[in-house]
């Protein structure tokens, strides 16, 4: 079958899934919605505005015509104009999404590294104090609402200490020219060290908050898979070969235990991005979370729907990437025909 065939098959599935989710949002917004025109235009819209919205979204046409235009609009990334921001929604997303991606990828990398390490550590120290500490900590981070994590960090590390409590960078500094959209990267490209430093410092708290939220997913799965793998005969074979315990645990066992971790990467991403809705709100970080909370507060429905679609597509894509990564790591998936 090979990696290519596998990838093509997975990619095809992902495309189907994306079309499906877009149709689902259509059903929700055009069919389930009690009064689609009102929803799209916002509760305080005037009659003329509502007329315009009906025309724009073809709300007077039969549902399949509506669906047709909806799909066309979505896949040409034409999400209309935001009634609140007064800008094309795609422009808004183009501006805000990279900032959130920057935040989320940093947070995810942190979670994965820490999660893998603490999970492996807990497994290697099963039922000893280190294990209990790790498990207690992930129970706590799992149960604590994201906004409380953010508030605690803000209160103790910002108000009581030195880190900035919010914003993406010192507001006195001008934003770097958008090249990639990732503002720290743009500052770096521009050689704007002052801004780069400021944005890094401002990233610390939101990144830690987000990493803490999804910390439990990775640690938990890493710990249990490591526990399983440490009992397997192939780890024992490695030990019996005389490669030494460190190599047996941190090469043979760790690599095998990472497989289940790969399968939850997309879940972690979904979790982080949902978390950033709340986290960005608290840290006044103007990314996608800000866009979503603003559109919620101001009944800016087109922006909300477009953001949802774009985020969901990203989740599906990340899932695809994780699946491919999975196949690269595990020959049983890539080459097929496994007996297990």
């Amino acid at each position: 079958m090979g990696l290519l065939g596998y990838t093509v098959r997975r990619a095809f599935n992902s495309v189907l899934l994306i079309v499906g989710t877009v149709i689902l949002t259509f059903v929700l917004t055009h069919i389930v919605a009690p009064n689609p025109a009102h929803v799209w235009a916002g509760p305080h819209a005037s009659a003329t505005v509502i007329q315009g919205v009906i025309k724009r979204y073809h709300l007077d046409a039969p549902w399949y015509v509506q669906l047709y235009y909806y799909l066309i609009d979505t896949f040409t990334l034409d999400f209309g104009v935001s009634p609140y921001f007064g800008q094309p929604v795609s422009t808004l997303i183009e501006t805000f999404y990279p900032r959130t991606l920057e935040l989320d990828f940093l947070a995810m990398s942190l979670t994965i590294v820490i999660g893998v390490f603490t999970g492996a550590f807990a497994a290697a120290h099963q039922d000893r104090i280190g294990d209990h500490a790790v498990r207690g900590f992930y129970l706590l981070t799992w149960s604590i609402p994201p906004f409380l994590v953010a508030i605690i960090l803000q209160y103790f590390l910002a108000y009581k200490w030195i880190l900035p409590p919010g914003q993406m960078a010192d507001p006195a500094l001008a934003l770097p020219k958008p090249i990639t959209g990732l503002i720290t990267v743009d500052a770096l490209i521009e050689g704007n060290w002052v801004f780069f430093y400021s944005s890094l410092v401002h990233l610390i708290l939101p990144v830690i908050a987000l990493a803490l939220i999804s910390f439990g997913i990775i640690t938990r799965i890493m710990r249990s898979s490591m526990l399983d793998v440490l009992k397997t005969d192939y780890v024992r074979t490695a030990i019996m070969k005389g490669v030494g315990n460190r190599r047996a645990v941190y090469l043979h066992a760790l690599k095998n235990s990472l497989i289940p971790v790969i399968t939850v990467i997309a879940l972690t991403f979904a979790y982080t991005i949902a978390g950033s809705v709340v986290i960005e709100d608290i840290f006044s970080y103007t990314g996608m979370g800000y866009l979503i909370t603003q559109s919620l507060e101001n009944f800016d429905y087109p922006t909300l729907i477009a953001s949802t679609i774009v985020i969901t597509i990203s989740v599906v894509v990340i899932n695809l990437v994780a699946d491919i990564l999975y196949a690269i790591v595990d020959p049983r998936v890539r080459l097929g025909g496994g007996q297990s």
């Binding site: 949002t25 979790y271 991005i273 949902a274 809705v277 949802t308 969901t312 599906v316």
Partner: peptide, 10 residues
Amino acid sequence: AFPALILALV
């Protein structure tokens, strides 16, 4: 496929 919280918001 949707992040649960965001779907709930919508």
